[in-house]
Design a protein around this nucleic acid. Sequence first.
DNA 1: GTAAATATCTTAGTTGCTAAGATAATATTA
DNA 2: TAATATTATCTTAGCAACTAAGATATTTAC
Lengths: 151, 151
Amino acid sequence: MESEVLTRIRKLSQQYAYTSIQMHETIARQAGLPGTDHKYLGFLIQKGEMTAGELSNLTGLTTGAVTGLIDRFEKKGLVKRQFAEDDRRKVIIKPNTESIMALFAPLYKEFRSKSQELLASFSNKEIKVIETYFSKAIEIMNETTNKLNNK
Amino acid sequence: MESEVLTRIRKLSQQYAYTSIQMHETIARQAGLPGTDHKYLGFLIQKGEMTAGELSNLTGLTTGAVTGLIDRFEKKGLVKRQFAEDDRRKVIIKPNTESIMALFAPLYKEFRSKSQELLASFSNKEIKVIETYFSKAIEIMNETTNKLNNK
DNA sequence: GTAAATATCTTAGTTGCTAAGATAATATTA
DNA sequence: TAATATTATCTTAGCAACTAAGATATTTAC
């Protein structure tokens, strides 16, 4: 038997994740990125440049899939390939942050201002609560995922 | 220029959504559902039975894709097809909740108890804050998605 | 009763994935 | 140093699930 609160939060949480992915997919499609590529573009922006192998590890995609992914990004001018100076086997992927921003910023504009507004409606203390919840929930989900993957 | 708080929350939020999807995908894979099928199984559980067309609308998949989706679920005994009595063109998809639960419950067990624990560490007032944030953020994301889709 | 609309299924073609192996560069070792 | 092993990425073949378009079956409208 589980508490009503837990059920409510769990449903909201699932819906939140789903809605968020849905929105990001819609925005990506409008920006000319069909499928799930935008998900990986996010990594590149957040982490900055990285090698193809690192992206493969991070995403769980095979190196072959990553090759195709970078090809598609490169063709759109969103990233550049560059051999590493210290190891010429490595391919460094350099996100072209400016062109990425130019592509996505207008689509996120309204969302951002509304989010800003929503956050402004909470006190600092309340925001801290939200942050704590997010952080700890992320930790729990990662633990669950890792435990399931390593056995 | 955007506030630091907004940036922090936005990153946490994206990470939350990504981690959540990642966990659900891992659980689904362990349950023998590769790809993204589990996402749609969630709809069936939450909404109960629905027609193929409704599922198509809800998911944004074409009717052809939905046919394949139901085929895969049916083959695994997770849903049943049934013609609607009032309109024999319609196919009602009936989720077999018991077999779905039996498949997934053990994989979610530990996650649930940890979530329960996490939630217990917040006061009722704080939980209300989290719920409010989720609800309103979902609303904003849906608005954004709808606005982008209808133009 | 015929025509139009609707709900689902089928088919052909596309996309992006994995797995396995090829290629090129680097590290190791005798 | 030369031979061998390892590493990083790319290429290829095969596969799964998608879309778009059209087929089929049923219902609705005239």
